[in-house]
């Protein structure tokens, strides 16, 4: 475990907990895309199938359980909680799941390391994670008025991705057999999707004005 990996995991953890705490405390999910949250729940479900077959470390198991639990909790809050679900802006969050899920599934069936159920699901989860933020980014652009917590949530997710790339570079030089081009390409695509958001996030921070994305 290197410092970039740990910082990346912690940023990821904080982003999810910030979101869950926000929804729990203010009983509102305004500005949050249910589509993105459902895609993340699917990402973690398909990626962590090895929870039942391989033991890596206590850290690994606990983190996997937290990501699974928190992502399903967030989806539950937005769909089922009697107060929270009223703040969900269904008409703005229009991205179709299958536009994202189907291409990722086809790609995972075509491009993978091993043709086994677990491996194809794992590969699918990498492709899916790369693009799962899209409904959220579309929603941010539509809503215009982005509250601080939603902005911080997306910023933390982007930071997590950037730290993982540093982690891969570090591991590439320190672990002789560390090779995984599928992870690298999916990860780089995912990080690039945040580039535009980052630009406006830093602009608003530098100029001390409220974050707004251009139409």
């Amino acid at each position: 475990m290197n410092i970039f990996r740990l910082a990346g995991d912690m940023t990821h953890l904080v982003s999810v907990l910030v979101l869950l705490l926000k929804i729990h405390t203010i009983k509102s999910c305004a500005g949050i895309s249910l589509k993105t949250q459902e895609l993340y729940a699917l990402v973690f479900t398909t990626r962590y199938l090895d929870l039942f077959t391989d033991y890596i470390s206590l850290y690994n198991t606990v983190m996997k359980l937290i990501f699974l639990g928190s992502s399903f909790s967030i989806v539950w809050y937005i769909r089922r909680h009697k107060i929270v679900r009223r703040s969900y802006d269904k008409d703005q969050d229009t991205f179709r799941h299958y536009f994202i899920v189907l291409p990722c599934l086809v790609l995972a069936l075509l491009i993978h390391h091993k043709f086994t159920f677990k491996e194809v699901m794992w590969t699918f989860s990498l492709y899916l994670e790369a693009v799962a933020i899209l409904p959220q980014l579309v929603l941010l652009q539509r809503t215009r008025n982005i509250d601080n917590l939603t902005g911080q949530y997306v910023f933390l997710l982007g930071a997590y991705r950037a730290l993982y790339i540093l982690n891969w570079i570090y591991r590439h030089y320190t672990e002789p057999h560390y090779v995984h081009w599928i992870t690298w390409i999916a990860g780089i695509v995912q990080t690039l999707l945040y580039a535009d958001f980052f630009y406006y996030y830093f602009q608003s921070w530098k100029n001390n004005v409220k974050l707004q994305l251009p139409a």
């Binding site: 391989d54 890596i56 690994n60 990501f67 794992w122 591991r171 560390y178 995984h180 992870t183």
Partner: peptide, 10 residues
């Protein structure tokens, strides 16, 4: 190349 190591990541 055979992949290795990456499966310990989240």
């Amino acid at each position: 190349a055979e992949e290795s190591g990456v499966k310990d990541e989240l």
